[in-house]
């Protein structure tokens, strides 16, 4: 699946976009964040406070229980501040 990072999450993780292959046991947004968090210090720092991490699955906002699957486009970003 493709993961996109925006704003300070991109800075902490050090990339704007990556292709990942999580294990088959990763079937929800919450499980994906747990798996990503264990990938390194940057990920851990970016995902330490889940309260300020928003998730979109295929460009729709998604909660922790939302399903994720191969081929999905997942985006992680802080609360939005446009306008």
């Amino acid at each position: 699946m493709k993961i996109l990072y925006f704003a300070w999450l991109k800075g902490k993780i050090g990339t704007a976009e990556e292709e990942v292959q999580p294990p088959a046991s990763v079937t929800t947004v919450a499980a994906l964040l747990d798996w990503l968090e264990a990938r390194g210090a940057g990920y851990a720092a970016a995902l330490a406070n889940r309260e300020v991490v928003r998730v979109a699955v295929n460009q729709e906002y998604a909660g922790p229980d939302h399903r994720v699957a191969q081929g999905d486009e997942i985006a992680l970003f802080p609360p939005v501040t446009g306008g």
């Binding site: 970003f77 802080p78 609360p79 501040t81 306008g83």
Partner: peptide
């Protein structure tokens, strides 16, 4: 609605460096 739903983020240039705006 735009301010809370459209995926935009503001990075401000301040004397102490770039600062992402908090919601």
């Amino acid at each position: 609605w735009l301010k809370t739903k459209a995926p935009f983020w503001k990075l401000e240039e301040t004397p102490s460096g770039g600062q992402w705006v908090d919601a």
